[in-house]
Design a protein around this nucleic acid. Structure first.
Length: 910
RNA sequence: GGGCAAUUAGCGCAGCUGGUUCAGAGCAUCUCCCUUACAAGGAGAGGGUCGGGGGUUCGAAUCCCUCAUUGCCCACCA
C-alpha cells in the first residue's frame, strides 16, 4: 500500500478512537489483575476544555495507558462536578437575559432551569476529552449530583451530624453579596489593592460632663479645633461608620491617654459611642484609634463580644445599605463609600485622606465581587478531628506528593485549620438534609431541627424527639445547599458506591486509587479533604500518589486569560497539529511541579515527531525482503538496537516511577529519532539499485527484526502518542479484528552487562563516523565522494570491530590500519585514538597546525591541573583509590594525546 | 509579617546522598546539503567563570552561611 509522504492525523484519530470504543478497551471490571485506578478531577459540568484540562488529562491518559501496557487492570473514571456557585451564577445570568429574576422563581422552577442548562451544556467537556484521546471508562461517567453521588453526600452529612462533627453556628462568615451566599475561608482570595485611608474626626461627646484633661504624658497627642476636642480614626471603609458601636484605643498608647473614659460621636451619624480599651489595637497604626463595627469585621466582632458591644448590621445581603443604618438606605456599598467621603468632607469631619494599599478579599468564583464579612447562622464541619486523621498518611509517605514540597504546605494548613463552613445559600447543589420544626410545636428559644435522609425519616425522628403531635407540615426543609466540595471530597469513594454500599466488590478492588493528577491550587479544597473522607469512611488513603501539575501559562509566562487572548483553543490546536502532536507539545513544556510555558512551537515539534515516525515506517515498509544471508553488520546492528532499547526503556520506566514524564518523553523521542531513525535504519538500509530504480532487497531476518523493533518502539511511545502508534501498529503486521496496541503488552528483559558493552562500542563507532563527517564538512567534500580512513594499529580498535558499519555510514572506500598516519591528512581524536582522513591538496597545513597547537595548549593546562592534584599529598591520601587512579589515567591520556598532536604538527611541517 | 521554592547556554529545563555521564540534552541560532523515508528532513558548528560574596573540604553547580532577585502559599492589622 502506498502511504502519503506526510502523516495526516485527521484521517486517523477519529477512526481509532471509535475502534477503541467499539472494542470496549477503556472499560474495566474487577478481576484478578493488579488494579490501576485514577479518578478524574471532575471538571465543571458546564465548562469547556481549556489548556489546563489538556495538560492534566494528557498526563492522566499517559499514566493509564502505560499501566494498561504493563498488564494492569487500568480504570480511569470520568465525571463532572455540579460546581454550585459557578453554575448557579451562569443560570442566573441566563435567566436575567430572558428578563427572569431568580427571586421570582420557586426553588423547583429554578432547579428546572438549572437542569435544562446542565443537560444542554453538560458533558461538552467530556466529549472534547475524547478528541485528546483520553481513555476513560465512559460507561462509568458520573456526576456529583446524580443519584448515587447525591445519596452518598446526604448519608455522610447525616453520619457526621450524628457523630457530632457537624454543627450549626452563628459566626462571622465571608459573604458573597452577588451570589448571596456564605463562602468558606479558602474560597476567599485576597488581592493587594490601591485604596484610600480616610482619617475621620470623632468629636468628644461628653466634654461638658467629663472635661478633657491632658494627662501630660510624654507623646500625648490631642486634637482640637473650634468645634472641640476630637479623635482621628483611620479607616479604609468609611461607609461602615453607621455600624460603629465603639472606638477602641490601646490602653498603653501614650498618644491617646486623654481619651480614656470618654465618649465620642460618630461623624455624620451622630451616635455617641464609648471609647474602649483593648491591647488588640496597634499603637503604631494611624493614630492608634480604631473604630469598632462588630457586624462587619471579624476583629471588630471579637472586640464586640469581649466588650459586650451592640451589633448593628448595616448591610442587606446584596451589599446595599439596610434600614438599620438609618441613612444611605438602599444604596450600594461602593456608591456609599464615594458619597460618604464627600459628605464627610463637606461637613468638615474628614481630617485628611491618604493613599493606601491594602488587601481585599474576593470571592474565588465571582472574582469581581469583594467579600463582605457578615454575621449569620451557617453549618460547619468541625475540622480538628479530620486534620488529625489526614496528617499521618502524608507525613509517613503512605501518600506521596510529587513534587514533595507540597507536603509542607499540606502540613501547615492542617495544623492551623479552621472549621469548614459547608452551607451555601444556593439552590443548585445538595440540599442540606435538616428539617426545622415549627416553633409553636416545640418549647424553648432555640430553633429545633432534626437531620435525616428524607422527609419521612425526618418526621419519625422529630416525633421520637419532640412527640407525636408533630406532623409533616410542621417540618421545614433547610433551604440551603452544601458546598460543592462537600460532594467532591467523597469522589474516590462515591464513584465506586463505597458510601451507600460499603465493602462492595468495586470499592474493595479499586480503592485506594493509584494516582491523582491535579493542580496545587486545589490541594486544600480537594486533595486534603479527600484524604480526610478516605480515612474517615474507609480507614485508608484515597490514592497512593498525587501528581501536582503546574499552571499553564503562555510563552511569556503570563497566565492565560480571555482578556489577553493568549489562551489557545485546544480543539483548534488538535485540528492543526493532531492530538498526538498537541499531547507532546503540552508535555515537553511540563517539568514536574513547575508552571508550564506553553508555546505553539512545541506542538509543531510534536507534529514533526509524528511525521518522523510515519516516514520511518514508510522506509521500512518499502523494503523488499529476500532469502539472502544476513550480514554481520546487520546482525550486530540489531543486537545493538535491542540493547539500546532495553537500556533506554529501563531508564524511561524509572522516569515514569518518578513522575518525570517530560523527561521520559524526551528519552522516548531521542530513542526513536536519533538511535533508531538516525543510526540504526541508516546502518541496515539496503543499497539503492540504480538499474531497477528501487532499493535492493533486504535479508528477511533483518527486516523481520526491524519490524519487531519498530513495534516495540511503538509500544514505548504509545502512552504519549496513542493515535499514530496505533495506526502504525496496525500497518506493521496483519492484525486480527479486535487487536490493538492499546491492549498489547511490552515485556523486555533488564539490560545486561553485554548490552552496556555493545552500547559503548557503538558510541565510539558513532564518534568515528561523526569525525569523518566533520572532516567532510570542514573540507567541503561531498558525502558521495568515497574517503579513506586511517586508524591506529591498536588491538581493540573500534574501527576493526565495526569496520563495515563505519565504512558504510561514513562513506569510506576503506579503513587502513596504520602505525603512522600519512601526510596530508586531517585528523581527529576518539578517546585517545587518533584517526586521519587523507584529503590530499585540500589540507590547510597552517590551519591544522594552529588547531593542533591550541589543543595542545588546552591539554597542557588540563595536565598541569591534574599534576597539581596528584602532587597534593592530602589528595592522594584522602581521596578514594578509584578517584586517584582515574586522575592518573586522565593524566596519561592527556600525555598521549599531546604526543599524538605534536607528531602531527611535525609531519604537517614536513 | 511567617513559610516554601527557584536562580545552570538566547529560552524553558536536567544534573540523585560532593570526585568520568560534569558542565548536559531539547528548542532556538549559525554553516553546508532538495542524498533515493522524512526540508514537518539530514550533516556539522558556536554558545555557560552554574545569581553575588564568604566558608567547609585534598576537591563544590552539588554541603553550610549570607546577600540579591523572582515566584508561590499562608496570616484578622483598621
Amino acid at each position: 500500500m502506498e502511504l502519503a509522504t506526510k502523516y495526516n492525523p485527521s484521517e486517523v484519530e477519529g477512526k481509532w478512537y471509535q475502534y477503541w470504543l467499539d472494542n470496549k478497551f477503556f472499560a474495566s471490571k474487577p478481576d484478578g489483575r493488579e488494579p490501576y485506578t485514577i479518578v478524574i478531577p471532575p471538571p465543571n459540568v458546564t465548562g469547556v476544555l481549556h489548556m489546563g484540562h489538556m495538560l492534566n488529562n494528557t498526563i492522566q491518559d499517559i499514566l493509564v495507558r502505560k499501566a494498561r501496557l504493563d498488564g494492569k487492570n487500568a480504570c480511569w473514571v470520568p465525571g463532572t462536578d455540579h460546581a454550585s456557585i459557578a453554575t448557579e451564577a451562569k443560570v442566573v445570568n441566563r435567566l436575567a437575559e430572558q428578563g427572569i429574576r431568580k427571586q421570582d422563581l420557586t426553588r423547583e422552577e429554578f432547579l428546572k432551569h438549572a437542569w435544562d442548562w446542565t443537560h444542554e451544556h453538560g458533558g461538552i467537556i467530556l466529549k472534547q476529552l475524547r478528541r485528546l484521546g483520553a481513555s476513560c471508562d465512559w460507561d462509568r461517567t458520573s456526576f456529583t449530583m446524580d443519584q448515587a453521588r447525591s445519596e452518598s453526600v446526604l448519608r455522610v452529612f447525616c453520619d457526621l451530624y450524628d457523630k457530632g462533627l457537624i454543627y450549626r453556628g452563628l459566626r462571622m462568615v465571608n459573604w458573597d453579596p452577588k451570589a448571596q451566599t456564605a463562602l468558606s475561608n479558602i474560597e476567599v482570595i485576597y488581592r493587594e489593592e490601591k485604596s484610600k485611608l480616610y482619617h475621620l474626626k470623632y468629636y468628644v461627646a461628653d466634654a461638658d460632663t467629663n472635661p478633657v484633661v491632658p494627662t501630660g504624658q510624654e507623646g500625648e497627642v490631642l486634637h482640637r479645633d473650634e468645634k472641640g476636642y476630637f479623635a482621628v480614626v483611620a479607616t479604609t471603609r468609611p461607609e461602615t461608620i453607621m455600624g460603629d458601636t465603639a472606638m477602641c484605643i490601646n490602653p498603653k498608647d501614650p498618644k491617646n491617654q486623654w481619651l480614656k473614659g470618654h465618649k465620642v460621636t460618630v461623624p455624620l451619624v451622630g451616635r455617641v459611642i464609648p471609647v474602649i480599651e483593648d491591647r488588640y489595637v496597634d499603637i503604631e497604626f494611624g493614630t492608634g484609634c480604631l473604630k469598632v463595627t462588630p457586624a462587619h469585621d471579624v476583629n471588630d466582632y471579637n472586640l464586640g463580644k469581649i466588650h459586650n458591644l451592640e451589633t448593628i448590621d448595616i448591610f442587606n445581603p446584596d451589599g446595599t445599605i439596610s434600614q438599620a443604618a438609618g441613612m444611605y438606605i438602599g444604596m450600594d456599598r461602593y456608591d456609599v463609600r464615594r458619597q460618604i467621603a464627600l459628605d464627610l468632607q463637606e461637613a468638615g469631619l474628614m481630617d485628611h485622606v491618604e493613599d493606601y494599599e491594602n488587601k481585599v478579599g474576593y470571592s474565588e468564583r465571582n472574582p469581581d465581587v469583594a467579600v463582605e464579612p457578615r454575621l449569620c447562622m451557617q453549618w460547619y464541619l468541625s475540622m480538628k478531628h479530620f486534620a488529625k486523621i489526614a496528617l499521618p498518611p502524608v507525613l509517613d509517605g503512605k501518600i506521596k506528593f510529587h513534587p514533595q514540597k507540597y507536603v509542607t504546605t499540606y502540613r501547615n494548613w492542617l495544623e492551623n485549620i479552621d472549621d469548614w463552613c459547608i452551607s451555601r445559600q444556593l439552590w443548585w447543589g445538595h440540599r442540606i438534609p435538616a428539617y426545622y420544626i415549627s416553633a409553636d410545636k416545640v418549647s424553648g428559644e432555640e430553633e429545633q431541627f432534626v437531620v435525616a435522609m428524607n422527609a419521612e425519616e425526618a418526621l419519625d425522628k422529630a416525633r421520637a424527639k419532640f412527640g407525636n403531635h408533630i406532623t409533616a407540615s410542621d417540618l421545614r426543609h433547610d433551604e440551603d445547599a452544601l458546598d460543592t466540595w462537600f460532594s467532591s471530597w467523597l469522589w474516590p469513594i462515591s464513584l465506586f458506591d463505597g458510601i451507600n454500599n460499603p465493602g462492595n466488590e468495586e470499592i474493595s478492588y479499586y480503592y485506594p486509587t493509584t494516582d491523582l493528577v491535579t493542580g496545587p491550587d486545589i490541594i486544600f479544597f480537594w486533595v486534603a479533604r479527600m484524604i480526610m473522607a478516605g480515612e474517615e469512611y474507609l480507614g485508608d488513603v484515597p490514592f497512593r500518589n498525587v501528581y501536582f501539575t503546574g499552571i499553564v501559562r503562555d510563552s511569556l509566562g503570563r497566565k492565560m486569560s480571555k482578556q489577553l487572548g493568549n489562551s489557545p483553543d485546544p480543539i483548534g490546536l488538535i485540528d492543526k497539529y493532531g492530538a498526538d502532536g498537541v499531547r507532546m507539545g503540552m508535555l515537553l513544556a511540563a517539568p514536574a511541579g513547575n508552571d508550564i510555558l506553553f508555546d505553539e512551537a512545541l506542538c509543531e515539534q510534536g507534529r514533526n515527531f509524528c511525521n518522523k515516525m510515519w516516514n520511518a515506517f514508510r522506509l521500512v515498509n518499502g523494503w523488499e525482503s529476500a532469502d539472502i544471508q544476513q550480514s554481520s553488520l546487520n546482525s550486530h546492528a540489531i543486537a545493538w538496537m535491542q540493547a539500546k532499547i532495553r537500556t533506554d526503556v529501563a531508564e524511561i520506566n524509572d522516569l515514569y516511577g518518578k513522575y518525570r514524564l517530560n523527561e521520559a518523553l524526551m528519552a522516548v523521542f531521542k530513542l526513536f529519532t536519533d538511535e533508531f531513525s538516525g543510526w540504526y535504519l541508516e546502518m541496515i538500509k539496503p543499497e539503492y539499485d540504480r538499474e531497477k530504480n528501487c532499493s535492493k532487497p533486504l535479508d528477511k531476518a533483518t527486516l523481520d527484526a526491524t519490524l519487531d523493533i519498530f513495534e516495540q518502539l511503538m509500544k514505548v511511545i504509545h502512552p504519549f502518542m496513542p493515535f499514530i502508534t496505533e495506526e502504525l501498529y496496525q500497518h506493521i503486521a496483519e492484525r486480527k479484528a479486535g487487536e490493538s496496541i492499546m491492549v498489547s503488552t511490552l515485556r523486555l528483559d533488564a539490560p545486561s552487562e553485554l548490552d552496556a558493552k555493545l552500547i559503548v562500542i557503538y558510541e565510539q563507532g558513532k564518534q568515528v563516523i561523526s569525525g569523518v563527517r566533520a572532516v567532510r564538512q570542514q573540507k567541503n567534500i561531498s558525502p558521495r565522494e568515497p574517503l579513506v580512513l586511517e586508524a591506529p594499529q591498536t588491538a581493540d580498535n573500534v574501527a576493526v570491530l565495526l569496520s563495515d558499519t563505519i565504512i558504510k555510514m561514513a562513506g569510506l572506500s576503506e579503513i587502513r590500519m596504520v602505525d603512522h598516519k600519512s601526510e596530508g591528512t586531517q585528523s581527529f581524536l576518539v578517546g585517545t585514538d587518533e584517526y586521519a582522513v587523507p584529503v590530499g591538496s585540500l589540507i590547510d597545513a597552517e590551519a591544522e597546525i594552529r588547531k593542533a597547537e591550541a589543543e595542545i595548549q588546552r591539554l597542557q593546562g588540563f595536565k598541569t591541573g591534574i599534576e597539581k592534584k596528584l602532587g597534593n599529598e592530602r589528595f592522594v591520601q584522602n581521596a578514594p583509590a578509584q578517584v586517584v587512579e582515574l586522575e592518573r589515567k586522565k593524566l596519561s591520556d592527556a600525555e598521549s594525546k599531546i604526543a599524538a598532536l605534536q607528531e602531527s604538527i611535525k609531519s604537517l611541517k614536513g
